[in-house]
Amino acid sequence: MKSSLIIFGFFVAGVFAGLSGKLPAGFDFDKLGSYALYLLMLLAGISIGSDKNSWSVLASHNYKIIWVPVTIVTGTMMGSALAALLLPSLTLRETLAVGAGFGYYSLSSVFITQLHSHSLGVVALLSNIFREVATLLLTPILVRYFGNLAGIASGGATAMDTTLPVITRYSGKSYAVIAVFSGIVLTILVPFLVTFILTV
């Protein structure tokens, strides 16, 4: 929650910097953005690869657990597809790409900005922050009515870190491993799936 506030703070600071009209005119911010994204991808890869915990969780579990992230991907894509029907201003490809952030707003928003457009990048940022915040607030109710996987499903990629405490509290400690596993799989999937949806 603290980190999402910091990240959102940088975004808001950028908005005001842009609105002020006092930025150096000749500077190519888009080009800087693409290089920063390349750096981000390399660093994100290193952070995934060097996480011992991820690899041991991935390796040490019953194969049935893979159904959890598979279900979350399917359900998210169905929901995002429905959103395309309700929102005439967005295409199916666009809503699917936003949904494919699974709550991982920082990576998915910069990704979509570079691959597609600034306005869809903003939709992705707000939508995926909303998914995280809604999970933090609604997990107690969701678990009560939809079973112990509900918080993990709602949290998506965030189930491995920011929403893990609330999931563990309301679904029980035995679900923490499933939450971390599912969150890791979805986190790794985000860049691949967003690229796939926007470029195929």
Partner: peptide, 27 residues
């Protein structure tokens, strides 16, 4: 843009929570 973001997020959550309910009951 804000409304679009909320709509996509809410429907994504609803879709995955509903499917996870069936998985939970089955598995």
């Amino acid at each position: 843009i804000g409304l679009e973001a909320i709509a996509i997020a809410s429907l994504s959550i609803a879709g995955s929570v509903l499917l996870s309910y069936f998985l939970f009951k089955r598995l």
